[in-house]
Simulated scan of single mutants.
Amino acid sequence: MKRIAVYCGSATPADPRYVILAREIGEELARRGIGLVYGGGKLGLMGSVAYGALDAGGEVIGVIPEALVGGEVANEDCTELHVVANMHQRKQAFTDLSDGFLTIPGGVGTMDELWEAVSWAQLGYHAKPVGLLNAFGFYDGLIEFYRHMADTGFIREAHRGILIQDEALDPLLAKMAAYVPHRTIFQMKAEDL
């Protein structure tokens, strides 16, 4: 993977572990020579992951909707900053510019990005790994819910492995690098669905 899109919060939670984690992820991606594609902001975990990568000499590509640029939210220090018209174009750019997706702690926007990456993989719009870093048990409930959806049949057995998760970055990146694309919905016939 040459570039990874990192989905994370633009908020700064009271617990400093999350900001430190984001910075360490940015640094580690840069050390591995993996470019960062992210939301283009300078606040919260977004800013932390970007500055971690930049300070370690990494490539940082920000993608931000023009509505957020004016509020001094845009990170002008990025290697490249793409200003797009809306959130739909932003998520399409994440898909176009990256070789995989890594979700770290975040809120509603982060969940929107994660679920779209999973949904698009399921359908066949991309065949890239979708990783979820369950740091500090942040995503325990979400992982259980994903299992519940699969166990009840709302996620097909062929798609159960789309969401790749781990509690630590190194094994998660290894799992993402080893990801073998599944049979997509676009490849299936009605009787398979």
Results as ranks from 00 to 15, higher is better:
Thr110Gln: 06
Glu72His: 14
Glu72Trp: 12
Met111Asn: 04
Ile104Ser: 07
Ile104Tyr: 05
Glu72Asn: 15
Lys91Arg: 13
Gln89Tyr: 10
Lys91Met: 11
Thr110Pro: 07
Ser98Met: 01
Val69Thr: 15
Met111Asp: 02
Asp99Ser: 08
Met87Ala: 09
Glu76Gly: 09
Glu66Ser: 00
Val84Ser: 07
Pro105Met: 04
Leu102Ile: 10
Glu113Arg: 02
Thr103Val: 13
Val69Met: 15
Leu81Asn: 14
Leu97Ile: 07
Asn75Ile: 06
Lys91Trp: 06
Pro105Glu: 07
Gly70Glu: 12
Val83Lys: 01
Ala93Tyr: 13
Thr103Ile: 03
Leu97Lys: 06
Met111Leu: 13
Asp77His: 13
Leu68Asp: 07
Val108Pro: 00
Glu66Ala: 00
Asp112Tyr: 08
Thr110Cys: 08
Gly109Glu: 12
Ala67Met: 15
Ala85Met: 03
Val83Ala: 06
Glu72Gln: 14
Met87Thr: 04
Val83Asn: 03
Ala74Gly: 09
Ala67Ile: 15
Val73Asn: 07
Cys78Asn: 11
Gly71Phe: 08
Asp77Trp: 01
Asp112His: 09
Asp77Ala: 14
Ile104Trp: 02
Met111Trp: 04
Ser98Glu: 03
Val84Lys: 02
Thr95Trp: 05
Phe101Cys: 04
Ala74His: 05
Phe101Lys: 00
Met87Arg: 01
Gly70Ala: 11
Leu102Asp: 12
Val83Gln: 03
Ala93His: 13
Cys78Asp: 10
Arg90Trp: 05
Thr79Val: 07
Asp96Phe: 00
Gly100Pro: 13
Thr110Lys: 06
Gly70Met: 06
Leu81Gln: 14
Asp112Ile: 06
Asp77Glu: 14
Gly106Ile: 00
His88Gly: 14
Glu66Thr: 00
Gly109Tyr: 04
Asp96Pro: 01
Gly106Pro: 02
Gly107Glu: 08
Arg90Ser: 11
Ala74Cys: 08
Gly106Tyr: 01
Cys78Ser: 12
Asn75Trp: 10
Thr95Ile: 12
His88Glu: 13
Val83Asp: 06
Leu102Thr: 08
Thr110Trp: 04
Gly106Trp: 00
His82Asn: 07
Leu81Val: 15
Leu81Ile: 15
Asn86Thr: 05
Ile104Ala: 08
Asn86Cys: 11
Val69Ile: 15
Asn75Gln: 12
Gly109Phe: 04
Cys78Gln: 06
Val84Asp: 06
Asn75Ser: 13
Val73Glu: 15
Ala67Tyr: 15
Thr103Met: 08
His88Trp: 13
Val84Gly: 05
Leu81Pro: 14
Gln92Ala: 14
Ser98Val: 01
Arg90His: 08
Asp112Gln: 14
Thr95Glu: 15
Gly100Tyr: 05
Val84His: 03
Asp99Lys: 00
Ala93Leu: 13
Asn86Val: 04
Asp96Met: 04
Asp99Tyr: 00
Gly109Thr: 05
Thr79Asn: 11
Ile104Lys: 02
Pro105Tyr: 02
Phe101Tyr: 14
Ala74Ser: 12
Gly107Ser: 06
Met111Val: 02
Ala85Thr: 08
Gln89Lys: 12
Gly106Ser: 02
Thr103Asp: 12
Gly100Asp: 10
Val84Ala: 08
Val73Gly: 03
Asp77Thr: 04
Leu97Glu: 10
Phe94Gly: 12
Val69Cys: 15
Glu72Val: 05
Val84Asn: 07
Met111His: 09
Val73Ser: 11
Gly71Asn: 12
Ser98Pro: 03
Val73Gln: 13
Gln89Thr: 09
Ala93Thr: 11
Asp96Gly: 04
Glu113Gly: 10
Gly109Arg: 00
Leu102Trp: 11
Ala67Thr: 15
